[in-house]
């Protein structure tokens, strides 16, 4: 009987110790994880600076899409700030505002001043005229000169006919300085 009592005491002590260890482990488990925020901040700051630099490098934002795949060029002339006329496979836009739809890669004759053989695209002309008026007003207020510069951003599958129609219309709306936009590439014979 006496020899059993110390055994029970040892067991109780052992159980108590085990319980304490378990409680300690549990307490450690619910403890919030330590986040090393400083090194993370360093990495994020580097990414942020890089992205800010690439964001602000070009004066105009041009985005390629399935409808607007730009051809490649070896030209070394950088982008300039100007009115952007983009010709995707589906529509013609002026500064991200759609002005005319394209059907089978051509401008619908109902949108042209002289029908199927006409070169002047009415909605494009109206929109560009509005732009010209605004740009002239800005130029007058700032004491600068209206340059009549337009960036032509065309899908590589655009027909030459549409290009000439757009250039003709822009020319009629007092734009006379055209820059074709293409992505940087290499000459491939």
């Amino acid at each position: 009987m006496n020899s059993q009592q110390p055994d029970n005491e040892v067991d109780a002590l052992w159980l108590e110790k085990r319980k304490a260890a378990k409680a300690k482990r549990k307490q450690r488990a619910i403890e919030p994880p330590v986040l090393m925020i400083t090194s993370l901040m360093d990495a994020f700051t580097i990414i942020l600076v890089f992205l800010l630099k690439s964001f602000g490098a070009d004066p105009v934002q041009i985005r390629e899409s399935d409808d607007l795949r730009l051809p490649r060029t070896t030209s070394s002339k950088n982008l300039e700030d100007a009115v952007v006329i983009s010709i995707s496979s589906k529509a013609i836009q002026v500064d991200d505002r759609k002005v005319a739809d394209l059907r089978n890669g051509m401008v619908d004759e109902s949108l042209k001043r002289d029908g199927a053989d006409g070169l002047l695209i009415n909605p494009l002309y109206d929109q560009l005229k509005e732009k010209v008026q605004h740009l002239k007003m800005v130029a007058a207020r700032t004491g600068s000169e209206f340059k009549g510069k337009a960036l032509i951003v065309g899908d590589k599958g655009t027909n030459y006919r549409v290009i000439t129609e757009v250039l003709y219309t822009a020319g009629q709306a007092e734009f006379n300085n055209f820059l074709f936009v293409a992505a940087e590439g290499k000459l491939e014979p």
Binding site: M41, L48, L51, A57, L70, L167, N176, L179, F180, A182
Partner: peptide, 28 residues
């Protein structure tokens, strides 16, 4: 950190990784 986490996706969306060039042409 919250601000930076918001700015990164926004800038990634707007960032252009392809360099665009221009070719000067005279009117038709």
């Amino acid at each position: 950190m919250n601000l930076v986490c918001m700015l990164i996706p926004l800038l990634l969306y707007g960032a252009v990784f392809i360099k665009f060039m221009t070719i000067e042409v005279n009117s038709p």
